[in-house]
Design a binder for these strands. Structure first.
Length: 954
RNA sequence: GCCCAGAUGGCGGAAUUGGUAGACGCACGGGACUCAAAAUCCCGCGACUUCGGUCAUGAGAGUUCGAUUCUCUCUCUGGGCACCA
């Protein structure tokens, strides 16, 4: 399947509409018609019956439908986000419309303004998107760009306690830092915090000096200027001290612009001896520098160690003269991996390697392992006209409907123990109605009793409501789900007891509960689960475990069905503490905010017609000014409601189009399950490098999400991703209208013909490299096609010579292999060689000519079909069998061997292809030139490479 | 700064499990055909040369009988990310 489609939502079309006042849908239609005509003109064999257009309501119905799935699963949420705002034009700008911090149209400096925006929680998929890269075959740059963009860094969060008066600990105030190098903590000579963090400290009552306040205000303002260039490092001593938890020494706290507010925790420990930026800063402000890591030479003699082949390292090379012999020696050594090494000046950790020290130090200073990602959630709103309308309405009445949460405690737990009361209080504060009953058989759990006691609460729950189950309560939650006949909105399992347990394991349990209680729980514990039924009754689910849980081990997808979202948190034990903020935040994402999804029957929500396409001067999309469209009825309660006026970004439609190709006209689903199962994943996705970061990541995210909710059959959408090179203009620059270096295919086809144009594009350079357009190059290609055409005159019934047949078969081999490896340029070169040879002959056989025409047909289909038909082949060439390579026929009787003496070619000899090595020696040694070069000496060694060369060492 | 890719005649490029560097095409020079031109066909086309050769694949080193290909260092070009702790 070789499909094609058009993705036309977005800025260029919208700007064109603003400029001309023409409806973008109209211009899009015209452009699609032009592209289609040109593609057909060039003879591309697309399956036109599957063509899609992302701006077609029949298509974007499903884009909207997918968005609603994100919404229903708590992955789409609204958040205040800064947007680029032009105060003169009074519109929000996309990043690409901001040039050097100024508005692209009018040059006014751009301001940051906060606006409520729809967000997609792609960060929840950070790890999955990273993991998925292992199972696909992408070209290296594409894979690396994905990895960098996700930007996983594993490190530790460590608290530094603060002292507002030197020498006096108040025990209350702490600064949390993030570091990937906890092993360097003994070298932390200062604490650096971002202006953003300083601002929040000021906000909660920190009495800083006027100079500090002034610096913070200034630094924040400079930051807002949002230039892309790196700013000089500035900073100020905050006037307070922090205690290095490793050395227990007081170190100064500095506020500086080189620490970012939105990375890590917004605070770092400054280790000037082992971080370039910390070093620069310490130099500038005269802060102490303390070395705590020593690079070490690993192995002088072995440049590559077999046990650590892939570890990057620094190689040191030196050339010295021997101390007494007159000899020059080269020394080579390797430093430690990635600058890590052996700890020094680090108390009892001195002498350990970085890797060994990391864990121990984190533990000793009370830190926590923490994984950070660079990836941010995806801002999914655009205050624009030309995009898919977001199919939600806001209903004040429904906002006030109370969502219910059922908290189920675990074995020997209670509704008023551990984190449950805290969670109940927090959720009630947020407007939830919370049930946290205590089971009467909590110490001797009996499944049926629990089900009976929970039944009255379960009865009250529905699609908006939430069940949270802890430990054995998690298992209870699953049993509830397999017994009901309705859907529950969200299910959170906290360290669920779900793994089968044996008697001996129960006996080994080390906690205080009596053994007999365990055996009473066993039947409950090990009761089988009907996952199919459970999955039918859940809209969304989340599972968390703790990595140091003494009683419930982490359980992954070997127990949970493949689609369950499972997270492993650090240091939560068995969640017996009073608070679990992470869980609270997760539950909060399921909170009803008054936004109500349109029912599927009302999709597509079509873009209304407007008079003006500019965003309004309040920064909202033009849709906001159409009262008739905005004012609507709530699909849930029927009361008055207003529509969302934001539209989706241009990435939306292109995030799933590959799925639609499998079933482009389906109006019951985005595509039929069977067809998806048949076609997906995409075997091979070739495209430009400009789409290997965002589009690739977004579409993988959508596909993985759709997989998780059971809509698509594969986790990853694309098996293989390659990239073609860009064709540059004749000036070597990227083709663009403004530069005036655009080549129009219509003109080229007019002048040289479609086939010449096609072949030139393939012949001009390697598939994956950027090449400059040179119209002169078309001349040679056209000559080649003319020569092929002229060969007709030579066709006869004669037989071709063995040499010609051999060359023909070598050409079949080369062309076949090169097509598969996308080496089109060399395939064409090989055919040119054959045609040059044939042109020299008086006569050629019809058979040879036909085979040549077949080989040529993928490159020049028009001329090839014409010649094929003309020379008496009934069936279309396109459906004929590809020529077969015959190794026997490709063989030549003789080969030319190069004769080398001491590595230099001195002569060539033509010998029988099947000649023996002994005979070759005889021939070569008898050779006149060889004799001359040998100068009577005996050869030390003779190397014979069959079919290639003979090398004589003297 | 970091990451990725690359560097071969006048030009686009070819050749890698290490084996005759410059295939194929463009441009250029010479010749044939023609009254002439275009088109076409044939020949030549890396540099130097005392015509024996010598030097040449961004630079320098290494391994090897032999390196465009493998190892190391450096330079430059293109692309991506960027004070990511």
């Amino acid at each position: 399947m070789y499909p094609i489609g058009f993705d036309a939502f977005g800025l260029p079309t919208e700007n064109y509409a603003i400029k001309t006042g023409r409806p973008p849908a109209e211009a899009t239609k015209e452009n699609i018609a032009t592209f289609t005509r040109q593609f057909k003109l060039l003879g591309y064999s697309f399956d036109w019956s599957r063509a899609v257009d992302t701006t077609d309501p029949k298509y974007y119905k499903w884009t909207q439908w997918i968005f609603l799935q994100f919404f229903k699963h708590g992955l789409a949420y609204k958040k205040n986000q800064p947007i680029n705002w032009c105060p003169k034009d009074k519109i929000g700008l996309a990043n690409e419309e901001v040039v050097g911090g100024c508005c692209e149209r009018c040059g006014t400096p751009v301001e940051q303004r906060n606006k409520e925006q729809w967000m997609l929680a792609i960060t929840k998929y950070a790890d999955k998107l990273l993991e998925g890269l292992k199972e696909v075959d992408y070209i290296t740059p594409a894979r690396v760009q994905q990895e960098n963009w996700i930007g996983k860094s594993e490190g530790a969060e460590i608290d530094f306690s603060l002292r507002f008066v030197p020498g006096q600990a108040d025990g209350k105030h702490k600064a949390k830092i993030f570091t990937t190098r906890p092993d360097t903590i003994f070298g932390a000579t200062f604490l650096a915090i971002s202006p953003e963090l300083a601002q929040t400290w000021l906000g909660v009552g920190w009495q800083a000096s006027p100079a500090v306040k002034k610096y913070v205000a200034q630094a924040l303002q400079d930051r807002a200027a949002a230039t892309r260039e790196e700013q000089a490092k500035t900073g100020i001593d905050a006037g307070i001290k922090a205690v290095n938890p490793a050395t227990k020494e007081e170190i100064p706290v500095w506020i500086t612009n080189y620490v970012l507010g939105n990375v890590g925790t917004g605070a770092i420990m400054g280790v000037p001896a082992h971080d370039q930026r910390d070093f620069d800063f310490a130099k500038k402000f005269n802060l102490p520098i303390k070395q705590v890591i020593e690079p070490h030479i690993i192995d002088v003699d072995h440049p590559t160690r077999s046990d650590k082949k892939d570890a990057p390292r620094v190689v040191v090379q030196g050339i010295v003269k021997h101390w007494d012999k007159d000899e020059i020696i080269q020394l080579r050594g390797e430093t430690a991996y990635e600058g890590e090494g052996i700890l020094i000046n680090s108390g009892k950790y001195s002498g350990l390697t970085s890797a060994e020290a990391k864990k121990k130090i984190i533990e000793a200073v009370g830190g926590r392992m923490k994984t950070n990602y660079k990836l941010r959630d995806w801002v999914f709103s655009r205050q624009r006209y030309w995009g898919e309308p977001i199919p939600l309405v806001f209903c004040e009445h429904c906002k006030n409907i109370k969502q219910k949460v059922l908290l189920i405690h675990g074995f020997t737990g209670r509704g008023d123990k551990n984190w449950l009361p805290w969670m109940k209080q927090q959720l009630e504060k947020q407007g939830f109605e919370v049930f946290a009953p205590t089971m009467s058989t909590t110490d001797h759990p009996i499944l049926e009793k629990w089900m009976d006691e929970l039944a009255p609460y379960v009865e009250k729950l529905g699609e908006d409501d939430i069940i949270v189950g802890h430990s054995l309560g998690g298992k209870a939650a699953l049993h509830i789900l397999e017994r009901i006949n309705k859907k529950i909105g969200h299910v959170y399992l906290v360290a669920p007891v779900i793994k089968q347990v044996t008697d001996s394991e129960l006996q080994d349990k080390k906690d205080k509960r009596p053994e007999k209680d365990y055996f009473s729980a066993k039947a409950f514990w090990n009761a089988p689960l009907n996952w199919k039924k459970i999955e039918e009754n859940i809209i969304s689910s989340d599972v968390i475990f703790s990595d140091n849980d003494p009683s419930v081990p982490y359980v992954g997808h070997e127990v949970f069905p493949a689609r369950w979202r499972i997270q492993e948190l650090h240091n939560y034990e068995h969640f017996t503490q009073a608070e679990i903020p992470v869980l609270f935040e997760n539950i909060l994402q399921s909170k009803n905010t008054g936004w109500v999804p349109l029912p599927e029957s009302e999709l597509p929500l079509k873009l209304p017609k407007v008079k003006k396409y500019e965003p309004t001067d309040t920064g909202e999309s033009p849709l906001a000014s159409i009262e008739k469209w905005v004012k609507t009825k709530c699909p849930r309660c029927g009361g008055p409601a207003r529509r969302e006026t934001d539209t989706m970004p241009n990435w939306a439609g292109s995030s799933w189009y590959f799925l639609r190709y499998t079933d482009p006209r389906n109006d019951k689903a985005l595509a039929d399950q069977k067809k998806l199962a048949y076609w997906m994943a995409v075997d091979w996705y070739n495209g430009g490098m400009e789409h290997t970061v965002l589009h690739l990541l977004y579409s993988r995210f959508w596909n993985q999400f759709l997989y998780d909710i059971g809509v698509v059959p594969t986790r990853e959408p694309y098996q293989k991703r390659t990239s073609h090179g860009m064709i540059l203009g004749p000036d070597g620059e990227k083709m663009s209208k403004s530069r005036g270096n655009v080549i129009n295919p219509d003109e080229m086809v007019e002048q040289f013909g479609t086939d010449a144009f096609r072949i030139y594009i393939m012949f001009m350079g390697p598939f994956d490299q950027a090449v400059m357009w040179d119209t002169n190059g078309l001349v040679g290609v056209r000559r080649f096609l003319d020569r092929v055409w002229n060969l007709q005159e030579k066709i006869s019934d004669s037989k071709d010579s063995p040499e010609i047949i051999s060359q023909l078969h070598q050409t079949i081999k080369k062309v076949t292999e090169d097509i598969e490896a996308m080496r089109f340029n060399t395939a064409i070169a090989k055919m040119m060689e054959l045609v040059n040879e044939l042109s020299k002959l008086e006569k050629i056989s019809k058979q040879t000519f036909s085979t040549l025409v077949q080989l040529l047909s993928p490159f020049a289909p028009h001329i090839a079909e014409e010649l094929w038909e003309k020379y008496g082949h009934g069936q279309d060439l396109a459906y004929s069998a590809w020529p077969k390579y015959d190794a026997a026929l490709a063989k030549t009787a003789t080969v030319t061997l190069a004769v080398q003496i001491n590595g230099k070619v001195r002569d060539t000899v033509e010998v029988d292809t099947e000649i023996t090595e002994g005979k070759v020696r005889d021939i070569v040694l008898a050779n006149e030139k060889v004799q001359k070069w040998l100068e009577g000496k005996e050869p030390k060694k003779i190397i014979y490479i069959k079919g290639k060369l003979v090398s004589i060492v003297v």
